[in-house]
Simulated assay, not measured.
Amino acid sequence: MRAIVVHEFGNYKDVAKLETLPVPEPGPGEVVVRNKAAGVSFAASLNIAGKYQRKAPLPYIPSTESAGIVHAVGENVTRVAVGDHVMCSVNHGGAAGFCKIEDVACFKIPKDMDFAVGSAVVTSYNTSYGALVRRAKLQRGETLLVHGAAGAVGMAAVEIGKALGATVIAVAGGETHCETARRHGADYVIDHRQEDFRERVMKFTDGRGVDVVYDSIGGDVTIQSIRSLAWEGRLLTIGYACGTIPDIAANRLLLKNASAMGFNLGHFFGWSPGGNRRQHIDALDEMAAGVLDLYSKGQIKPEIGARFPLPQFVDALDAVINRKVDGKCVIEMSEEDY
């Protein structure tokens, strides 16, 4: 099979190489999936550079999200069978013709679901669903502020927020990205390149503020988001795309009786200290089922903003980093990759 392989940490343009490797064999409790599509994310560039919070063991294959068809199963595998269409949370290894993973990392998807959509759902939509439903407990009638609303997880948060009955205020940069947020259901859209988002939020809410903030940006955005919270509001910290982890002044939370909470989907997948995906399989299945239910009802419509062939992995990552993609960027496999 063909795969993108990283032998040393560094700039992805220099160290991410297309190579030929043997097709993996499943062990007990493992599944080999014939990948049809895999997600490309900003986090992949940090991983390749060795700057991510969880360093990959070298050498490794990038991409932690894929979708495809079950090719082979090992002993004691009952969740899936050969021929099933699945979306997968891959420890590492999505950018390859085949990947080997634990059976609990596979979730069946409808046969009519685009594999590219499946690769978007497994991380981006499960992250937003888990954050908004499991952690923040967003309620019908509340107001949700979503940063990075044209990106993969932000778009998911906009759609899920609307499906839950919230009023959604989306923040994006530039008219193209703002239009994407509108297209996916945002009630109000703020162009942060042209407007102060806090001022606009307070205007939209008649000075009350928002009940929940979905923040994947970090830095000063987080600080201003706390100031944008309503009484007893909740801040969800999801990631730090701006590169700066903010220091939160506790008195800001005290004054509004507010909460700051994180959501790390990777913990459920066993990617953080103390994480064990087999311990969390019920929670993972619940989140995946919730997202797939919304999909079946047409309440979420994941957007694949760009598709690249496997050999153009570096170009795909370039497009993500330079914010040229709305929604999810994916690589798709061809017969040459198997």
Rank of each mutant, 00 (worst) to 15 (best):
Met1Ser: 02
Ala3Asn: 03
Val6Ala: 04
Glu8Trp: 07
Phe9Cys: 07
Tyr12Arg: 10
Tyr12Pro: 05
Leu18Ile: 13
Pro22Gly: 06
Pro24Tyr: 02
Glu25Thr: 02
Pro28Phe: 04
Glu30Pro: 03
Val33Arg: 03
Val33Ile: 14
Arg34Tyr: 01
Arg34Gln: 14
Ala37Gln: 08
Ala38Met: 06
Ala44Trp: 03
Ser45His: 06
Asn47Leu: 12
Ile48Glu: 05
Ala49Lys: 15
Gly50Asp: 13
Tyr52Gly: 01
Ala56Gly: 03
Leu58Asp: 07
Leu58Arg: 00
Tyr60Thr: 09
Ile61His: 05
Ile61Trp: 03
Ile61Gln: 05
Pro62Thr: 09
Pro62Cys: 06
Pro62Gln: 07
Thr64Ile: 10
Ser66Val: 04
Ala67Met: 05
Ala67Leu: 08
Gly68Lys: 09
Ala72Leu: 10
Val73Gly: 11
Glu75Asp: 14
Glu75Val: 05
Asn76Pro: 02
Asn76Gln: 02
Arg79Met: 01
Met87Arg: 06
Cys88Gln: 01
Cys88His: 06
Asn91Ile: 08
His92Gly: 04
His92Ser: 09
Ala96Lys: 09
Gly97Phe: 10
Phe107Trp: 04
Lys108Met: 03
Lys111Ser: 11
Asp112Val: 07
Asp112Cys: 08
Ser119Met: 08
Ser119Cys: 11
Ser119Ala: 15
Tyr125Pro: 06
Asn126Trp: 06
Ser128Gln: 05
Tyr129Ser: 07
Val133Met: 12
Val133Pro: 06
Arg135Asp: 01
Ala136Phe: 07
Gly141Ala: 10
Thr143His: 04
Leu145Tyr: 06
Ala149Leu: 02
Gly151Trp: 04
Gly154Val: 13
Gly154Ser: 09
Met155Leu: 14
Ala156Asp: 12
Val158Ile: 13
Glu159Asp: 11
Gly161Trp: 13
Gly161Val: 15
Glu175His: 03
Thr176Tyr: 03
Thr180Arg: 15
His184Arg: 12
His184Asn: 15
Tyr188Gln: 10
Ile190Ala: 01
His192Tyr: 15
Ser216His: 04
Val221Thr: 15
Thr222Lys: 01
Ser225Leu: 09
Arg227Trp: 02
Leu229His: 01
Ala230Pro: 00
Leu235Ala: 00
Leu235Asp: 00
Thr237Trp: 03
Thr237Ile: 14
Gly239Tyr: 07
Cys242Arg: 09
Gly243Val: 12
Thr244Leu: 14
Ala249Val: 00
Ala250Thr: 13
Ala250Ser: 11
Arg252Thr: 02
Leu253Lys: 09
Leu255Gln: 13
Ala260Lys: 00
Ala260Asp: 02
Asn264Val: 07
Leu265Ile: 15
Gly266Ile: 12
Ser272Asn: 05
Gly274Thr: 06
Leu284Pro: 04
Asp285Tyr: 08
Ala288His: 09
Gln299Pro: 03
Arg307Thr: 15
Arg307Leu: 11
Pro311Gln: 13
Phe313Lys: 03
Asp318Phe: 02
Asn322His: 15
Gly327Ala: 09
Cys329Lys: 00
Val330His: 04
Ile331Trp: 02
Glu332Ile: 08
